[in-house]
Computed example of a mutant assay.
Amino acid sequence: MKKASVAWIAVAGGPALALWCVPLEGALFVVSGPGEQAAPGLAEADEAQVTLRGDHGGRIVTWLARVSRVAPGTDEWDTLAPLVGAKRLNAPGPTAELVARWATDGCALVRLAPSGNAVHGADLPADSLAEATRPAPVVRAVRKPFRLHRVRRR
């Protein structure tokens, strides 16, 4: 977990979402909200399922996490938010401005602390667990390819 930068997080039986995270103090921290990644229901959840991948790209562990929100203005926020903000890639501006925006724009800084047993190794499912493609308004029918010259049939 200490090398994780992306985790697949599922809340309340919903689909797992790939979310950027920062490992600190034996937990994962995720920022979501306006101007950040979308994690519907995570800030209000009590627990979530976290899946991490290994260096080979495959799943190596899945565990249940206790979800707790770090409130702006607390000592915990003042300590953790700048550490998480410093790890944010492509941040628009300095870390102090980023953390201030998180506090005022309604972004959620969430701690995912392990609870219960982790599933790893031979206990992981052997099948892929790939989900079917979700419907989206941007998907449209593919036309037949254009042919410049006449193609003879034999």
Rank of each mutant, 00 (worst) to 15 (best):
W8S: 14
L64D: 02
L89V: 03
G14T: 12
A16N: 13
G93P: 04
D55V: 10
L89R: 15
L42H: 00
K87P: 00
M1Y: 08
I60G: 11
G26Y: 15
A71N: 12
R152S: 03
V84N: 01
L129M: 13
A43L: 04
R59E: 13
A48W: 12
A48T: 06
E97M: 02
V61D: 02
A86Q: 14
T95G: 05
R152F: 02
R150H: 09
A122V: 09
R69H: 13
I60D: 12
W8G: 12
R101S: 15
L64G: 04
V139F: 15
K3S: 12
A100H: 04
R152W: 04
K3C: 08
V138L: 13
A43C: 02
V50S: 11
A27P: 09
D46A: 14
L124V: 12
L64E: 05
G73T: 02
E44D: 01
L19T: 04
G35W: 09
L64H: 03
D46T: 14
A81M: 05
G116C: 08
G14V: 07
R134E: 12
D105P: 00
W8I: 09
D75M: 00
R152T: 07
L112A: 13
T104R: 13
A71S: 11
A141Y: 05
A48L: 06
D78L: 10
V67E: 03
K2M: 00
T133L: 13
G93N: 01
P94T: 01
P82Y: 06
C21P: 00
S115I: 13
W8A: 15
P72V: 07
A118P: 02
L52I: 06
V11I: 01
T95Q: 10
Q49A: 13
G73S: 07
S128Y: 05
T104P: 07
G26K: 13
T74H: 08
D123P: 03
A43R: 06
V6P: 04
G116S: 03
V110C: 01
L83A: 15
E47I: 00
R152V: 07
R143G: 12
G26Q: 00
M1D: 05
A113W: 04
R66T: 08
E97W: 05
A108D: 07
V119N: 04
V31N: 07
I60C: 15
R134L: 12
G41N: 05
